[in-house]
Structures are given as C-alpha cells and as structure tokens.
C-alpha cells in the first residue's frame, strides 16, 4: 500500500485480442487494487480465459496493454503472479511430492512447509499420483499449491469447474485461509452464488467486452440487489 490510497496491482488499458479474425477481447480496461478480491463472470466464450491468459503471459501482449505492479508482462511479473489454469496442468503420472519439489525449486515465494500442512489437513498423501485422484482432489491440490505462494496477485481460472459442492466449499476455505494479506485475487467462475460473498468487485464479460463493473457491497447498499440478480439482468 502506498500512503493512504490503495495501490494498483493490475492495470489493463485498451486490451484487445483476436484469434485469427475472431475478436476474443475488445478494448478492455480495468484495474485491480491491492488487497481486493475481484470476480470475473460471464458465459462460456465471453473471453474470461483469454483475458487471464493475457495477464499471465500465455498469450502475447505486444502492445503492453497489461501492467502488473507497473511492469509489462514478463518474467518479473510472472514471479509475483500465482496462476491456476482452467484445467489440470499436471500429467497424471506426477506425484504430489514432485509438484511440491517443482514449486519449491521454481518459486522463491513458495512456502513448502505450509503447503504440506494444508495437504495433510485435507488428508492428501504426498506419494500419490495425480492421475489416481478425483477431480475435486486434484483441484484442491492445485489451489493449495497456488495459494501457498506469497504472491502479490493470485489468478484462479475456473477453480470450481466440475467439482462437487463440498469440495467447492473446501476450495473457497483454502483460498480464504491462505491468501496473503496484501495480495489481490482475480477469480473467474460460473458459480456466482457460491462466490459472491467473497468478492469485492465484480466484472462481467460479454462477447469480449466489459458490460458491468462494480463494487458488490456498494451495489447491495444502493439497490439491494445480489450479484446473481445483476448477472441475470445483464445476461438474460
């Protein structure tokens, strides 16, 4: 935090992206303040994953429209961003201990002891192979690894897809428990009702454009509407 004002951790200015001729992101501008939890909502194909891939550097940002902690996306920003992709990024034959080794070696901010503690708390054995575990457990492992980094910006792409409600609640719990104090979190999900209590700001994407961007508490105060109501209104 700089002085009294919240500082900006992520800034997107007129960000666009095309896949061939198809526009996936169309002139998007927004920013995320330090310490905020921001929800990114929208139907399938609205550009959520594209936006996230731009931020984490999986898609190229030639125009440097994205600035993280004031710097364009690159290896310096990758060191402070902790990213969980929308699908499992590990091969099935990987052991959990390998993943711990991997994170410990490659990320200076990874707290291995903490990760092991949380894994043990969830009853997950270290010598198990990823391929033998249920989707919910895999998702938990991925979130535990990602949240065990002391990153400045956490980016979770669809952390609840295809897992049961109990696992979903556990994942939310793990997120809340492990988020470092001064960190921000960008969460992309379809599960608006389950997540709206943990979100400060909401962004709705529709066909690659931002159609709604508000502080959720302010919205509740002003219009006594839930985020879900707002979502239905925009997308129905």
């Amino acid at each position: 935090m700089r002085g009294e004002n919240m500082s900006i951790i992520l800034e997107c200015n007129n960000l666009s992206h095309k896949y061939g001729k198809k526009t996936a992101l169309d002139d998007i501008s927004f920013s995320i303040e330090t310490g905020k939890v921001v929800g990114l909502f929208g139907p399938n194909g609205s550009g959520k994953t594209t936006l996230i891939k731009k931020i984490v550097g999986l898609l190229l940002d030639d125009k440097q429209s994205v600035k993280i902690d004031g710097k364009p996306v690159g290896e310096t920003t990758k060191a402070i961003v902790s990213y969980s992709p929308d699908r499992l990024a590990f091969k099935g034959n990987r052991k959990i201990s390998y993943l711990l080794d991997f994170y410990e070696l490659m990320y200076d901010d990874f707290d291995r002891a903490h990760a092991e503690e949380v894994l043990a708390g969830q009853g997950i054995q270290k010598d198990e192979c990823i391929g033998k575990l249920s989707k919910g457990t895999c998702e938990k492992i991925q979130i535990i690894l990602v949240m065990s980094r002391k990153a400045k910006l956490y980016i979770l792409d669809e952390p609840f897809s295809g897992i049961d409600p109990v696992a979903r609640e556990t994942v939310i719990r793990i997120m809340l428990q492990n988020m470092s104090e001064e960190a921000s979190l960008l969460l992309s999900t379809h599960h608006i009702q389950e997540t709206e209590q943990i979100i400060d700001d909401a962004i709705f994407l529709k066909e690659g454009k931002i159609v709604f961007q508000k502080s959720v508490e302010e919205m509740r105060e002003e219009s006594s509407r839930s985020l879900n109501d707002a979502y239905m209104e925009v997308f129905r």
Partner: peptide
C-alpha cells in the same frame, strides 16, 4: 514438446523465466 505444448505448458510457460 510435451513440456511446452501440452497442458504442462500452462505451468512451464508461466514460470518466472523467459
């Protein structure tokens, strides 16, 4: 190929290296 161009690429290409 498998490290960069399959699912593991999501992990590898977001490491803090070029």
């Amino acid at each position: 190929y498998s490290l960069l161009f399959t699912e593991e690429g999501l992990l590898r290409l977001t490491l803090p290296v070029k």
